[in-house]
Design a binder for these strands. Structure first.
Lengths: 337, 337
DNA sequence: CAAAAATATGCAATCGATTGAAATAAGTGC
DNA sequence: GCACTTATTTCAATCGATTGCATATTTTTG
């Protein structure tokens, strides 16, 4: 009650407690060595004056920030904003994982204009480690930085010879599964919607191609480089579907959001899903449950992914070297295919 | 090339340059006083050794962190995750605004279990200011903390006598507009989908009630406390619509995501939108463009909102006192109503 | 009961950049 | 060439917590 003078640092508290600052520090941080009695007394005192040690000073001294950077590079996208629900899902999961482990999450969206964006972040000393969500078209940059900066993990595709540590689903397999599924349902002409400049998407496309080839339908695949951002994807898709070419019987969308765009365009031009056109998305977002018809999709286990990302990162921070993780994707058949 | 010894601090660089650390500091930070010549020389040297001043030390000395906390309290929600695209949209915009102004964004999701969650964050000294997205049911906590901690702004509803500084749209007006719109289209029985424990949602509901009262339809409004989280909202809505009560002619959903859930349930039970039931959402998310039929909604200008949040926060950090901002919502009529 | 061992606390250097005041160098006027 | 500004640069204290080492206090033990 009688808050004579605000206790602003460890020395103030030390004075009040009649001990040295060092003792207070040790007492508060439970670094053995201090008798139970004084420890309790100091802790009580700290609570009473609601004193919390200054984090910046602590960070400086122990040389860690307690924060992990989460970066979303939007290299191949001209659109300004992160509008893909995929990101928030991943972000929410990462926030959970990191919080649980006592780390803060520092968010940064980046539109890589030069090859320097990642270096700047890494060297800023703001974070103890970095999680990059999606390679976009920045694999080279990621590899270069990963070679000198250990605590870096990436959500996304895995490619042979890649230097950086990545976690993701097997995009090639996913693309293959998606196309195979459509083929099994009788589709011959298939369109792939997605911009293959991004690594993961390219891999999904390659998977589709493999499936088509196996079925002897290689020449039946059209590729539409639809934007990831919903608003931008719409015209891409509309142009393709109304351009008068042979109408696809099946569509593999590189993300659930693109699939939703497609769903709307199809409705607008009066095609029924799945009767006229079969459609399958990619990601397995909760959103896919809300569409009409509910969206078939290739599901990535993001919970497991976020968990793995954080695990690997912490091991790397500890100095360990870690392998990439490729998780199997899962076909979820709902009503759109 | 001959990187004899890594330059890790300002003193190392000072030694190389043959000047004092103070001079290096001033040269690098463009604090006048240093001759153009040495300044250029030191900057060149810094670039050459790619040296960047240690941020933690800087922060400690100048007593600011350069980071703004963004908190999403999920008080009234039992669901575990942030799955509302509204958040990512807001988050993306805030990231833009903050980055532009040289601040980092520290993300934190909180499930308030005690009344202490906000204090902990505020006192942690990790951030220079705090943006809270949505009051949830934590208005009291927000008011209490705002009384002692200036740099705090909240996205959400504004209520008379509120202590904390908020930015948001006029939820009451929005609810009123939504209901009025449906009434004008001939709806008499109207249902409101949303959990009114959250302040903003309660205000939207009150707006609806006002509109209904004006039209002499007060007894025709049913309220369904649907969850914000999409997965959880679905059964809430399905139960209501299939419970055999009089079917509503119009639905006001408290968010676009809830509206999407409703859209799906309506499709499942074979009701057509807008022919059998008219539906309007709230938020004005890009997502609403992707639904079939495209979603009518009450649009909040989130870009302006994010801009205002950051502006007000920075003014508060500077010591100024600021008023809350209530923005007018806008009716966007698409095809669902 | 003294010596040895164990435990508790204090002391002071350290992390790395910033900044007010003091010192030095350069420039100006007469 | 001297006194006097003015422009640069250096010095040293500071931000606040941590921690190796030294010292003081207790406890144990022979």
């Amino acid at each position: 009650m009688t808050e004579k003078q605000r206790v602003k640092n460890i020395s103030d508290l030390a004075r009040i407690a009649g001990v040295s600052p060092g003792t207070v520090s040790r007492a508060l941080s439970d670094t053995g060595l201090i008798s139970q009695k004084t420890r309790d007394r100091i802790k009580a005192l700290a609570r009473e004056h609601d004193f919390r040690p200054n984090i910046m000073a602590r960070n400086l001294r122990i040389q860690r920030t307690g924060a992990i950077g989460v970066v979303i590079p939007l290299g191949h996208e001209t659109g300004q904003h992160i509008s893909d629900p995929f990101f928030i899902t991943m972000l929410g999961l990462l926030a959970d994982e990191l919080t649980e482990r006592g780390y803060d999450l520092m968010l940064s969206r980046v539109i890589p204009t030069d090859g320097d964006w990642l270096d700047r972040f890494v060297d800023s000393g703001r974070v103890d480690g970095l999680i990059v969500i999606g390679q976009s078209d920045q694999s080279a940059t990621l590899d270069r930085v990963a070679a000198r900066y250990r605590p870096l993990v990436v959500w996304g595709g895995h490619s042979a010879g890649q230097v950086h540590c990545s976690v993701g689903s097997d995009n090639f397999a996913g693309g293959d599964i998606a196309a195979t599924h459509l083929i099994e349902r009788g589709c011959k002409r298939i369109a792939f919607f997605g911009d293959s400049r991004a690594l993961e998407i390219d891999q999904r496309l390659e998977g589709c191609k493999a499936a088509m080839a196996r079925a002897g339908l290689s020449d039946q695949l059209s590729v539409v480089p639809a934007h990831l951002v919903a608003e931008a994807a719409h015209p891409d898709i509309a142009d393709f579907l109304t351009s008068g070419g042979a109408r696809p019987q099946g569509i593999v969308a590189a993300s659930d959001v693109i699939a939703m765009s497609a769903l709307r365009v199809l409705a607008e031009i009066g095609l029924s899903v799945p009767d006229d056109v079969r459609l399958i998305g990619y990601d397995g977002l909760a959103l896919g449950e809300l569409t009409v018809p509910r969206l078939s999709t290739i599901k990535q286990d993001l919970t497991k992914g976020a968990h793995a990302l954080v695990n690997l990162l912490l091991r790397r921070i500890a100095g360990e070297d870690t392998d990439s993780l490729v998780m199997p994707p899962e076909l979820v058949v709902r009503l759109s295919s």
